[in-house]
Amino acid sequence: MSMQTNFVTPVAQLKAYASTAGVAIAIPSHGEPGERSRAVASPRDLRTEPGPIRFVVIALAVSFLTVFVVLPLVVVFASAFSKGISAYFAALAEPEALSAIKLTLLVAAISVGLNLVFGVIAAWAIAKFDFRGKTFLITLIDLPFSVSPVISGLVFVLLFGAQGYWGSWLQAHNIHILFAVPGIALATIFVTFPFVARSLIPLMQEQGTQEEEAAISLGASGLQTFFRVTLPNIKWGLLYGVLLCNARAMGEFGAVSVVSGHIRGETNTMPLLVEILYNEYQFVASFAIASLLAMLALITLVVKAVLERRLDEGQIPRNDPGDH
């Protein structure tokens, strides 16, 4: 139970809620929120507070973020390199580490790939057509965001586990889902389900259907319309969704932990290996793997900021201001 939005960005989050509720919320470009229109108050401005109060507010904000966010991140890298660089790379070169990295990449490729295809399909159906129950359907797509990762794993154990609904049938046919790649992939697909669709739906709704209608009236087929007109218009939004989906897929812990079975060298993804090594007091090794995941997070944030700027620029006004 939780808005397990591990990493839904403000943009996605707000777009998500904005589109559920049918409101357009202006999305500021990352880092420079709305400064075009509203400059930060000058000292004489009516709209600011006395100097000492400003100082206290800034100090509180900065120290809170430093203690709760910056320090944990620094600790990851400091611990990973605490025994030197060679120990760090030696830890990463362990067969167990390599197999975890491979498995993580494999699972991410499967789940991002499938969610990419189905996310685009869902976004097309939802954004380009009017039908009853649309809001409800979007709520269903959002469900995984609000389910605890542990429960996301649990549901698959109930289906495929030894005592689950289809457990004995699977066992009889020697099909391995739980404690194997298919189960890990399924749990990952579950938790990353909304990302692509949710990044595309508001964008595609905002773009409307006119360009597609124009393409159709010019004789284009449905697929031609999608690949030549729709896709170029949504490419940044799609990349944005894929980026977030991928970050979550590689970093997922709770859901995967429940279905993986923690078989060493076989069903451990990188986050699971971080846990195992940490619990075995192999801190350097644990934090070395963790540092890779932390770098993934940082890179994701940077790319996300770039994409958000692209998305902002991509919002070309439909009419020239001079036309009115």
């Binding site: 006119q210 360009e211 209608e213 124009a214 009236s217 087929s221 007109v229 170029p232 218009n233």
Partner: peptide
Amino acid sequence: HGASERHVGFVFQHYALFRHM
């Protein structure tokens, strides 16, 4: 026939030009 088979030229109110072309 669907729109794509009718050979009808349609000019949209807001032009609907393909913005990436």
